[in-house]
Protein backbone atom coordinates (compact mmCIF):
# COMPACT_ATOMS: atom_id res chain seq x y z
CA UNK A 1 0.00 0.00 0.00
CA UNK A 2 1.21 3.50 -0.73
CA UNK A 3 0.98 6.24 1.90
CA UNK A 4 -2.45 7.32 0.78
CA UNK A 5 -3.85 3.79 0.87
CA UNK A 6 -2.18 3.22 4.22
CA UNK A 7 -3.97 6.27 5.62
CA UNK A 8 -7.26 5.14 4.18
CA UNK A 9 -6.74 1.71 5.69
CA UNK A 10 -6.10 3.30 9.11
CA UNK A 11 -9.22 5.40 8.73
CA UNK A 12 -11.39 2.39 7.90
CA UNK A 13 -9.98 0.50 10.88
CA UNK A 14 -10.91 3.41 13.17
CA UNK A 15 -14.46 3.39 11.89
CA UNK A 16 -14.79 -0.38 12.06
CA UNK A 17 -12.99 -0.96 15.35
CA UNK A 18 -14.96 1.69 17.25
CA UNK A 19 -18.22 0.10 16.10
CA UNK A 20 -16.99 -3.40 16.84
CA UNK A 21 -15.69 -2.74 20.35
CA UNK A 22 -18.78 -0.78 21.40
CA UNK A 23 -20.98 -3.48 19.89
CA UNK A 24 -19.08 -6.11 21.86
CA UNK A 25 -19.41 -4.10 25.06
CA UNK A 26 -23.15 -3.65 24.59
CA UNK A 27 -23.61 -7.34 23.85
CA UNK A 28 -22.51 -8.10 27.41
CA UNK A 29 -25.83 -6.66 28.62
CA UNK A 30 -27.77 -9.47 26.99
CA UNK A 31 -29.36 -11.46 29.78
CA UNK A 32 -28.54 -8.72 32.29
CA UNK A 33 -30.42 -5.63 31.11
CA UNK A 34 -32.72 -4.03 33.69
CA UNK A 35 -35.95 -4.72 31.75
CA UNK A 36 -36.95 -6.73 28.69
CA UNK A 37 -37.45 -3.63 26.55
CA UNK A 38 -33.91 -2.41 27.26
CA UNK A 39 -32.54 -5.86 26.58
CA UNK A 40 -34.04 -5.76 23.10
CA UNK A 41 -33.01 -2.17 22.47
CA UNK A 42 -29.44 -2.72 23.61
CA UNK A 43 -29.20 -5.87 21.52
CA UNK A 44 -30.50 -4.00 18.48
CA UNK A 45 -27.92 -1.25 18.85
CA UNK A 46 -25.15 -3.81 19.40
CA UNK A 47 -26.14 -5.67 16.24
CA UNK A 48 -26.32 -2.44 14.24
CA UNK A 49 -22.80 -1.59 15.34
CA UNK A 50 -21.34 -5.03 14.68
CA UNK A 51 -22.99 -4.98 11.24
CA UNK A 52 -21.45 -1.61 10.50
CA UNK A 53 -18.08 -2.87 11.73
CA UNK A 54 -18.35 -5.76 9.28
CA UNK A 55 -18.87 -3.31 6.40
CA UNK A 56 -15.97 -1.05 7.39
CA UNK A 57 -13.56 -3.91 8.01
CA UNK A 58 -14.53 -5.54 4.72
CA UNK A 59 -13.62 -2.31 2.94
CA UNK A 60 -10.35 -2.21 4.86
CA UNK A 61 -9.55 -5.78 3.88
CA UNK A 62 -10.30 -5.11 0.21
CA UNK A 63 -8.08 -2.06 0.23
CA UNK A 64 -5.23 -3.91 1.89
CA UNK A 65 -5.56 -6.78 -0.60
CA UNK A 66 -3.69 -9.25 1.58
CA UNK A 67 -6.56 -11.73 1.78
CA UNK A 68 -7.83 -10.54 5.16
CA UNK A 69 -11.63 -10.34 5.34
CA UNK A 70 -13.68 -8.69 8.10
CA UNK A 71 -13.53 -11.76 10.37
CA UNK A 72 -9.80 -12.09 9.95
CA UNK A 73 -9.31 -8.43 10.87
CA UNK A 74 -11.68 -8.66 13.82
CA UNK A 75 -10.39 -11.88 15.33
CA UNK A 76 -6.69 -11.98 14.55
CA UNK A 77 -5.38 -8.55 15.47
CA UNK A 78 -3.99 -7.67 18.89
CA UNK A 79 -4.80 -4.61 20.97
CA UNK A 80 -2.00 -2.46 19.54
CA UNK A 81 -3.39 -3.03 16.04
CA UNK A 82 -6.87 -1.88 17.07
CA UNK A 83 -7.81 1.70 16.22
CA UNK A 84 -11.07 2.23 18.17
CA UNK A 85 -11.56 5.42 20.16
CA UNK A 86 -10.97 4.85 23.87
CA UNK A 87 -14.50 5.68 25.00
CA UNK A 88 -15.81 2.53 23.30
CA UNK A 89 -13.68 0.27 25.51
CA UNK A 90 -14.83 1.81 28.81
CA UNK A 91 -16.49 -0.86 30.98
CA UNK A 92 -20.29 -1.06 31.02
CA UNK A 93 -20.56 0.07 34.65
CA UNK A 94 -24.17 0.59 35.73
CA UNK A 95 -26.91 1.25 33.21
CA UNK A 96 -26.50 5.00 33.54
CA UNK A 97 -22.83 4.64 32.63
CA UNK A 98 -23.67 2.53 29.57
CA UNK A 99 -26.30 5.03 28.45
CA UNK A 100 -24.00 8.03 28.90
CA UNK A 101 -21.16 6.29 27.05
CA UNK A 102 -23.61 5.54 24.26
CA UNK A 103 -24.91 9.09 24.13
CA UNK A 104 -21.46 10.68 24.00
CA UNK A 105 -20.47 8.30 21.21
CA UNK A 106 -23.77 8.58 19.28
CA UNK A 107 -23.58 12.37 19.35
CA UNK A 108 -20.24 12.04 17.53
CA UNK A 109 -21.14 9.05 15.38
CA UNK A 110 -24.22 10.62 13.83
CA UNK A 111 -22.67 13.82 12.38
CA UNK A 112 -19.59 11.77 11.41
CA UNK A 113 -21.69 9.43 9.27
CA UNK A 114 -23.69 12.34 7.88
CA UNK A 115 -20.43 13.78 6.61
CA UNK A 116 -19.15 10.46 5.31
CA UNK A 117 -22.40 10.04 3.33
CA UNK A 118 -20.90 12.69 1.04
CA UNK A 119 -17.45 11.09 0.84
CA UNK A 120 -15.59 10.98 -2.47
CA UNK A 121 -14.93 7.29 -1.79
CA UNK A 122 -17.82 5.22 -3.11
CA UNK A 123 -17.56 2.38 -0.58
CA UNK A 124 -17.37 4.75 2.38
CA UNK A 125 -20.25 6.79 1.01
CA UNK A 126 -22.48 3.75 0.68
CA UNK A 127 -21.76 2.25 4.08
CA UNK A 128 -22.21 5.64 5.75
CA UNK A 129 -25.50 6.32 3.98
CA UNK A 130 -26.88 3.01 5.19
CA UNK A 131 -25.50 3.30 8.73
CA UNK A 132 -26.61 6.87 9.33
CA UNK A 133 -30.25 5.80 9.51
CA UNK A 134 -29.45 3.31 12.25
CA UNK A 135 -27.41 5.83 14.17
CA UNK A 136 -30.05 8.54 13.88
CA UNK A 137 -32.20 6.25 16.00
CA UNK A 138 -29.35 5.40 18.40
CA UNK A 139 -28.76 9.04 19.23
CA UNK A 140 -32.44 9.73 19.68
CA UNK A 141 -32.82 6.84 22.08
CA UNK A 142 -29.71 7.56 24.14
CA UNK A 143 -30.62 11.27 24.31
CA UNK A 144 -34.08 10.41 25.65
CA UNK A 145 -32.53 8.22 28.32
CA UNK A 146 -29.99 10.81 29.40
CA UNK A 147 -32.81 13.32 29.83
CA UNK A 148 -34.94 10.91 31.81
CA UNK A 149 -32.17 9.77 34.11
CA UNK A 150 -30.79 13.27 34.62
CA UNK A 151 -34.19 14.78 35.28
CA UNK A 152 -35.48 11.67 37.05
CA UNK A 153 -34.95 10.64 40.65
CA UNK A 154 -32.17 11.86 42.88
CA UNK A 155 -30.40 8.54 42.50
CA UNK A 156 -30.67 8.41 38.69
CA UNK A 157 -29.46 12.00 38.47
CA UNK A 158 -26.48 11.31 40.66
CA UNK A 159 -25.56 8.16 38.74
CA UNK A 160 -25.73 9.68 35.27
CA UNK A 161 -23.89 12.80 36.41
CA UNK A 162 -21.12 10.57 37.78
CA UNK A 163 -21.00 8.77 34.43
CA UNK A 164 -20.70 12.08 32.56
CA UNK A 165 -17.91 13.24 34.87
CA UNK A 166 -15.98 9.99 34.47
CA UNK A 167 -16.37 9.70 30.68
CA UNK A 168 -15.65 13.33 29.86
CA UNK A 169 -11.90 12.88 29.45
CA UNK A 170 -12.52 10.27 26.74
CA UNK A 171 -14.56 12.60 24.52
CA UNK A 172 -11.77 14.83 23.22
CA UNK A 173 -10.12 12.11 21.19
CA UNK A 174 -13.18 11.60 18.98
CA UNK A 175 -13.27 15.27 18.02
CA UNK A 176 -9.54 15.97 17.61
CA UNK A 177 -8.10 15.40 14.14
CA UNK A 178 -4.64 13.89 13.63
CA UNK A 179 -2.54 13.48 10.45
CA UNK A 180 -4.73 10.71 9.08
CA UNK A 181 -7.92 12.72 9.64
CA UNK A 182 -6.37 15.76 8.00
CA UNK A 183 -5.12 13.82 4.98
CA UNK A 184 -8.48 12.17 4.35
CA UNK A 185 -10.36 15.41 4.78
CA UNK A 186 -8.05 17.00 2.24
CA UNK A 187 -8.75 14.19 -0.21
CA UNK A 188 -12.49 14.66 0.20
CA UNK A 189 -12.78 11.14 1.61
CA UNK A 190 -12.89 11.70 5.36
CA UNK A 191 -15.11 13.77 7.65
CA UNK A 192 -14.43 17.29 8.82
CA UNK A 193 -13.99 16.73 12.54
CA UNK A 194 -14.32 20.42 13.27
CA UNK A 195 -17.87 20.33 11.93
CA UNK A 196 -18.51 17.08 13.78
CA UNK A 197 -17.29 18.73 16.97
CA UNK A 198 -19.66 21.66 16.52
CA UNK A 199 -22.58 19.34 16.08
CA UNK A 200 -21.44 17.21 19.05
CA UNK A 201 -21.12 20.20 21.35
CA UNK A 202 -24.52 21.54 20.32
CA UNK A 203 -26.28 18.29 21.04
CA UNK A 204 -24.40 17.48 24.23
CA UNK A 205 -25.07 20.95 25.58
CA UNK A 206 -28.79 20.85 24.71
CA UNK A 207 -29.42 17.33 26.03
CA UNK A 208 -27.46 17.69 29.26
CA UNK A 209 -29.16 21.01 29.91
CA UNK A 210 -32.59 19.47 29.52
CA UNK A 211 -31.37 16.62 31.73
CA UNK A 212 -30.37 19.17 34.41
CA UNK A 213 -26.79 17.84 34.29
CA UNK A 214 -23.64 19.88 34.78
CA UNK A 215 -21.02 19.69 32.04
CA UNK A 216 -17.52 19.09 33.43
CA UNK A 217 -14.97 21.86 33.03
CA UNK A 218 -12.63 21.74 30.07
CA UNK A 219 -9.79 19.55 31.20
CA UNK A 220 -7.04 17.25 30.01
CA UNK A 221 -8.25 14.71 27.48
CA UNK A 222 -7.15 11.12 26.95
CA UNK A 223 -5.74 10.33 23.51
CA UNK A 224 -4.25 7.32 21.79
CA UNK A 225 -6.95 4.87 20.75
CA UNK A 226 -6.88 6.00 17.14
CA UNK A 227 -3.12 5.36 17.07
CA UNK A 228 -3.28 1.98 18.81
CA UNK A 229 -2.45 3.04 22.38
CA UNK A 230 -5.24 1.60 24.47
CA UNK A 231 -6.36 1.32 28.07
CA UNK A 232 -5.93 -1.93 29.95
CA UNK A 233 -9.54 -2.88 29.16
CA UNK A 234 -9.13 -3.62 25.46
CA UNK A 235 -6.99 -6.71 26.01
CA UNK A 236 -9.71 -8.33 28.12
CA UNK A 237 -12.39 -7.47 25.56
CA UNK A 238 -10.33 -9.03 22.78
CA UNK A 239 -9.48 -12.09 24.86
CA UNK A 240 -13.17 -12.83 25.24
CA UNK A 241 -14.15 -11.86 21.71
CA UNK A 242 -11.32 -13.64 19.94
CA UNK A 243 -10.99 -16.72 22.11
CA UNK A 244 -13.04 -19.07 19.98
CA UNK A 245 -11.71 -18.32 16.49
CA UNK A 246 -8.16 -18.27 17.83
CA UNK A 247 -8.52 -21.59 19.63
CA UNK A 248 -10.43 -23.20 16.76
CA UNK A 249 -9.50 -21.26 13.62
CA UNK A 250 -11.67 -23.42 11.37
CA UNK A 251 -14.77 -23.37 13.59
CA UNK A 252 -18.03 -22.88 11.70
CA UNK A 253 -21.62 -22.43 12.78
Amino acid sequence: MNTREQQQFEYLLRLGDSDLILGQRLSAWLGHAPVLEEEMATGNVALDLVGQARSWLSLAGELEAQGRDADRLAYFRDAFDYRNVLITERPNGDYAYTIMRQFLFDAYHYPLLQQLSGSAHEGIREVAAKSVKEVEYHVRRSSEWVIRMGDGTQESHQRIQAALDDLWMYTGEMLTPDDVDDALLEAGVGADLEQVAWSWHDRVRAVTEEATLTLPDESWMQQGGKQGRHTEHLGYILAEMQHLPRSYPDARW
Binding site: L36, E37, M40, A41, N44, Y137, R141, E144, R148
Partner: peptide, 11 residues
Amino acid sequence: AEMAMNNARDV
Protein backbone atom coordinates in the same frame (compact mmCIF):
# COMPACT_ATOMS: atom_id res chain seq x y z
CA ALA B 1 -44.96 8.16 25.24
CA GLU B 2 -41.57 8.75 23.58
CA MET B 3 -39.98 5.78 25.28
CA ALA B 4 -43.05 3.67 24.49
CA MET B 5 -42.57 4.50 20.82
CA ASN B 6 -38.87 3.58 21.03
CA ASN B 7 -39.55 0.35 22.87
CA ALA B 8 -42.34 -0.66 20.50
CA ARG B 9 -39.94 -0.13 17.63
CA ASP B 10 -37.21 -2.13 19.32
CA VAL B 11 -39.38 -5.04 20.43
